[in-house]
Nucleic acid binder design. Structure first.
Lengths: 216, 216
DNA sequence: CGCCCACTTGAGGAATGTCAATCTCCGTGG
DNA sequence: CCACGGAGATTGACATTCCTCAAGTGGGCG
């Protein structure tokens, strides 16, 4: 993939990397740092589509369709490798196996969005929060960023609320409910899983095995 | 694409075409008929992910990942063209432009799911229903299936409710609200758009231009 | 004729949202 | 060193949307 790399982008925390509707979107691979993908509605409400973590490949949708469908913002300082849109087509002609990996990534993303949709549409507040904390922890665990059963999670409660379609206040109360039940504790930027079994059962979510995942 | 076609599948209404978790999923192109893609949670609740209409290419996610992430059910009688999973890889090697179309489709699907997520997560009941009716009408219009400002819409209210994360009762009451406001009327299997402007403004949704769309 | 499915309607209750005040950090300027 | 201000988290009181339960209607089909 290094052939296609055109540059490196370093941004501070709370920087907008891509705006919804941008016509010349870039493609990125995340080297380090974390962020969010989100959409903003006319009424100002915000839906967080996904949380962005190291290793993620972002902007494929925007790259293929020519217009970004969502905004991207850094939460912590981030470093990203950038690619050109037009190189995408070159990749398809020259490296079919890389192209296949790309569809694999797109399909995974679609699968994840389907799960999110089911969560937001059909689960109660405490189920949604449990589900999200497990998902977040799982991804960070896979990256080897956990220590014991804790992990640094630099987002705000507002971000989680906007991802789950809950109000900030309700999210806060739900988080403290999980804390008092000794199931999970997210405070001071660190998430600790205290009782995975209980979390999984209230989230109504079965443990899932993780296959290999192509890196871009 | 005919090279890859391996058969044709005709099913009656209310037939399950693919089950969530199926290990040998097929790929399909819809020739005629309509259906739904959905996920079922442990508690029995159902999330409709998308409505399937003629021309849709379904099962890409399942085909690439090797396991279906959702079920597919016909609502009306349907005719589908079937493809083999293993041919997907062959396609990538031999027809990069077709492969590129495939990513395009995957990206569109992802974009649509993002919009759905924002709708279910951030909009109120009446906003969600308005949004959904406009989306459904728009897709059918593009297929040339509309007459005047009406179109046949064979789904049940329960299907719409499950797509929007609302209860059947509330969906029903919201539909009759839209009817009494003379904005839209969906009854007896036909959807009529009575006041597009009003629908768009309550859905908080701007009109969108539609580009060409690859057929598979 | 009678059943089943989808749709409809009313009443009451629970989950979640909104508003508003307070608290705790933490960085900055004086 | 301390006052000030802002961002995020927390909490209480109240409002409202939406859900659940329950009953009833109407059409299609065996």
């Amino acid at each position: 993939m290094d052939t296609f790399k055109t540059g490196e982008l370093s941004v501070e925390a709370k920087t907008t990397i891509q705006m919804e509707g941008a016509k010349t979107p870039h493609l990125y691979t995340v080297s380090s740092g974390m962020g969010v993908r989100y959409k903003t509605l006319e009424n100002g409400r915000r839906q967080v589509i996904n949380f962005i973590m190291p290793g993620d490949f972002v902007g494929l949708q925007a790259g293929v369709m020519g217009e970004a469908g969502h905004s991207i913002e850094s939460t912590t300082p981030m470093v990203l490798c950038t690619f050109q849109r037009q190189d995408l087509w070159r990749l398809f002609q020259s490296y079919p196996s890389r192209a296949y990996d790309l569809v694999w990534l797109a399909a995974s993303e679609e699968a994840f969005l389907g799960q999110s949709l089911a969560t937001v549409g059909q689960r109660s507040g405490i189920e949604r929060v449990s589900w999200a904390l497990l998902k977040l922890y799982g991804r960070l665990d896979q990256l080897g960023l956990t220590k014991g059963n804790s992990v640094s999670l630099p987002y705000r409660q507002q971000d989680l609320a906007d991802a789950l379609g809950l109000s900030l206040v309700h999210t806060n109360k739900t988080l403290s409910e999980l804390r008092s039940r000794k199931m999970a504790d997210w405070s001071n930027g660190a998430l600790t899983i205290l009782d995975r079994e209980a979390l999984q059962s209230t989230a109504m979510m079965e443990a899932e095995e993780r296959g290999p995942r192509p890196l871009m």
